[in-house]
Amino acid sequence: MVRPEGVSVTGLGQRVKENTEVEVTCDVSRVKPAADIFWRKGPDGPLQTGTTSIGTNSDGKTCHLQSTYKVSFSRNDRNTKLYCLVTRPGNRTDVWATANQTVSVTCEYRHSRL
């Protein structure tokens, strides 16, 4: 077994507009065997799955994984971290590696005239 050499989360940008779905990506490099990838909004949120693709690295022995996940955020999610958790296959409690990105949510304010 080889734990991942690197894990990164991309796709959130500087700010995310509230209630707008965004697609984020988690890249996992050089892992063996192919690990499971889960997503979690905040430290205590439920584990979610994305769509994962598996490729073989040039060494022919380790895998490169990429998981995409669609998520939206509310104003209550301001400064929440979105986590990508890489776990041993079939054991979601054995976390090999994590990466996260903090979310900056921009809110839509509606002005009403009285």
Results as ranks from 00 to 15, higher is better:
S29D: 15
F73Q: 08
D36Q: 09
K61V: 14
K61F: 11
T25G: 05
A99I: 05
R15C: 07
V86S: 10
G6I: 11
V28W: 10
G50K: 09
S104M: 06
R113V: 14
C107E: 12
T25H: 05
Y109H: 15
I54P: 00
G13P: 01
P89C: 14
G11C: 08
Q66F: 00
Y69M: 02
H64P: 10
F38V: 01
P43F: 03
Q66A: 13
K41D: 10
E23G: 04
E21C: 04
D94S: 12
S72Q: 13
V31W: 12
E18W: 02
L47M: 06
S29Q: 14
W39L: 02
V7Q: 04
T56M: 10
T106M: 02
P89A: 15
T20W: 02
S29G: 11
R78Y: 10
G50I: 03
L47Q: 07
V105S: 09
H111R: 14
S72R: 05
S53F: 00
G55P: 09
Y83L: 10
E108I: 10
V103D: 03
E108N: 14
T98F: 01
T10C: 04
Q48R: 15
V7P: 00
T106K: 01
D44G: 09
V103Q: 07
T10Q: 08
T51A: 11
G60N: 12
Q14L: 11
Y69A: 02
T52H: 02
N79P: 04
G50H: 05
N76V: 10
V28E: 08
L47P: 06
T20M: 12
V16L: 06
V95Y: 01
K70C: 09
D27M: 09
F38S: 00
T52K: 06
I54S: 08
T68E: 07
Q14E: 15
C107N: 09
W39H: 04
E108K: 11
T68G: 01
Q101T: 14
D27G: 06
L85Y: 03
N100Q: 11
T52N: 01
E21L: 07
H111S: 12
P4W: 00
T20V: 15
V86L: 03
S67R: 01
R15N: 15
T49I: 01
V71T: 12
F73T: 08
T62K: 04
T56F: 08
S29V: 12
T56V: 15
G13K: 11
V2G: 00
R110I: 12
N79F: 09
D27Q: 10
L12A: 10
W96Y: 08
T62P: 09
R30C: 01
I37C: 01
L82M: 11
K61H: 08
V22K: 08
Q101V: 15
T68M: 03
L65A: 06
W96A: 06
T93L: 11
A97G: 07
L82F: 05
C84Y: 02
P46F: 09
Q101P: 11
R15K: 14
A99N: 02
V86C: 05
A34R: 09
R15G: 03
